[in-house]
Every structure is written in C-alpha cells, then in structure tokens.
Amino acid sequence: MKVLLLEDDEPLAVEVERVLRHAGYAVDVTHDLESAEIAAESNSYGCLVLDRSVPGGDGSALVATLRRRGDLTPALLITARDGLADRVAGFDLGADDYLVKPFAAVELIARVRALSRRGQVTVPPVLAGAGIRLDVQRHTTHRHGTQLLLRAKEFAVLEELLRASSGVVTRSDLIERCWDEHHDPASNVVDVVIAQLRRRLGAPDPIQTVRGVGYRLVDGTDDRPTADEPPGGDGDA
C-alpha cells in the first residue's frame, strides 16, 4: 500500500518515512501543501499522513479539499497542537484520526494500519488462492500450511495478485500500488520481485505471466500460453 506523507520538518520526515517503509508501505514524501496537493491529485493512496503546520497552509486543508471532491482516502493528522479545539477542527474538516507530536513509531504504524483497513472495508482480512493464505492484518503468509517469510515488496505484490482473484494485474498496476515515486519506470524491479516471489512460493508455480500485460494467480501454473501469450514466449520480455 502507498502512503502520502506531508511533513516540513525534514529530520522527522526522514524518520517517519523510514518507519513506514520498514512496516512495508511505499511512501511519497512532500514538504509543502502545494506538493502534497499535486501528489494527491496524481496518485492513489491507501492513507494520508499529514502535518498541520506546513509551508503553504494547513495539512487539514488538503483533507477538506479531497472530501469536497468525494475522495474518502483515510487521513491521519500529525501535529504539535494538542488542544481539544484543534483536534475537533481537524475532524470537522474530514480527518479520520489525530496523532500529537512527539509520538511513538509503533503507535503511528498501528494508526496507519487501522485507517488502511477502514478504507478497505470490502476486502477480507485474509486472502486465499492457489494454496496460499495471506493474513493482511497479521502480515503473515502460508502456502499449503507452511509459513513463508516474505519481504515487504513480495508481500505487497502477492497481496495485489490475491485481491485480483485470478484476474490479471498489470505491471503498471503493481508499480502504482506497490512502489513509490522514486521508482524508475525503466527498471525491471517488478520482474525481479516476481522471480523472488516464485522462488519463495515453490512448486507448483502459482504465478502465470500474461505476455505484454502482467500476471495472475492460478491453481498450479503449467507452461501453456494464455490467450494473450503466443506459444514459445516465456512472458518476461
């Protein structure tokens, strides 16, 4: 899942970005209100983490703007303002949660996870398919009863494949949902993560390549081409 972070205190922004990435999130970092507005208009996020006092205005103003547009992306406001009136004002503008500085990393992650689940109420907490069981909340993965230790990006990609329920997930979808703005679109990171994920999942390979499009999960991939993949292609080109 991708998070938008708005924080003008650079040392704090670096630390919050590090904490979120360690928890498995892709993070786009902005330092002023205008940059955050542009990012929110250009990308899809699972959660917004916004400082209130930033160059260009108040992070809560971005929440209000998004709500007027019908955008219900969960928003967490972080601020040194701990007064009741400040908290109420943030909620009135459409914020979903409020975290007062200084805060513990574990609390930040817990709140982001809670908001992410709130924004995906139609998604079951446990995803399953092709012998795989992925617990989104506990961040655990099993295949045929054996627990697998996946890296953050591997978990994120597998989650997207399971959510598609045997439908095709394009490379651009994976990049949009699992990588942040620092991703080089010309790189082969998607292929690398898919290859790593295949090794960890073991045989039979549940990830099928749809040549020129993307990937999908099946109950035991064989070497037959899909309708979009001509015979003789390995689908990784």
Rank of each mutant, 00 (worst) to 15 (best):
P55A: 10
A104S: 06
P206S: 10
D8R: 09
R133N: 00
L77Y: 09
D228I: 12
V27A: 01
L127H: 10
R143L: 02
G145K: 06
E7R: 09
F155K: 14
V14W: 15
V168S: 08
P11A: 06
R81I: 05
G129V: 14
V210H: 06
L149D: 06
A156N: 07
A128R: 15
V123M: 04
G94Y: 15
L99A: 12
A13S: 13
L84K: 05
F103T: 12
G46N: 08
E17A: 12
A195P: 04
V54M: 02
A61C: 05
P206H: 12
P102T: 15
L12M: 13
G90M: 04
V210Y: 01
L6R: 12
L12C: 11
G119W: 04
E176W: 07
S44R: 12
L115G: 07
S44H: 14
G24N: 00
V100A: 00
L149K: 07
R21D: 08
V106I: 13
V192W: 14
P185G: 06
P231N: 08
V112T: 14
T146G: 04
A195T: 15
A75V: 02
D180Q: 06
Y45T: 03
V49I: 11
I78T: 00
P204I: 10
A61T: 13
D205F: 14
L148N: 07
H144P: 00
L62K: 03
L66P: 01
S42A: 12
S172L: 01
T170W: 04
A105C: 02
A39T: 15
V136M: 06
G94C: 09
V16K: 04
G24S: 00
D234C: 06
L162R: 01
L217F: 11
P55S: 03
A227I: 15
R81S: 08
E181C: 00
A80T: 15
V126G: 05
L62P: 01
